[in-house]
Amino acid sequence: MPFLMFLFYPEELYSQGFTINIKPMYYGHIIQIDHPVIDSLQGEHVTFKECKFYMGKFTLYSKDTVLHFDRYHLIDIDNANTTVLSFPIPPSFYADSISFLLGIDSVTNISGIMDGDLDPLNGMYWAWNSGYINMKIEGITPKCQGRNNLFQFHIGGYQAPYQTAQKISFVLKKTQSIKIQMNVQNILEKVQLSKEYQIMSPGKKAKEMSESMSTMFSILQ
């Protein structure tokens, strides 16, 4: 039973940081917005136009310490400043597991207006059906039957039974830094882009896609 040492960690006390580097990939190729990447299996290319999502409530565990960081981070793969996260830790702290939320929890969704990464100005909020968009993935690929071959997946929803925030956890080898690889093909393989190319409201389809999103992460140490 790990001793809950710091629940809300006094960040200013330590300059040492646990770093998380987020690497969005498509069939092993790094994704860059507006740069086509090839699906090496089928030879199709995809040009991602947008890839933004929320990660938050990171918890780092070691044998005797649990460090919890309550805030949410908006990751925009077009903005390198957002794809590296750093969390203050004591110098002797090495995490042996990690958990986080992909998307915004339901309590935060009904807590009113917030600033910073949760500001609706970031375009990750539905004004006409209150709630955060947990993840936006948009792109162009020839097999997509949408207008201009565009697919748009805006995945969110916090109300039962269609909650879309996913808790994700990994066991680590004692470490102070990790790379989280996102295998975006896991999402696109699950949908037939010829038929399903836009989801922009909460519901069954969004829930299903959020479940495939939760399978796309892997850890590189």
Partner: peptide
């Protein structure tokens, strides 16, 4: 779902 968010609509 919250008065603060209402005006956005």
């Amino acid at each position: 779902n919250h008065l603060d968010m209402q005006a956005l609509a």
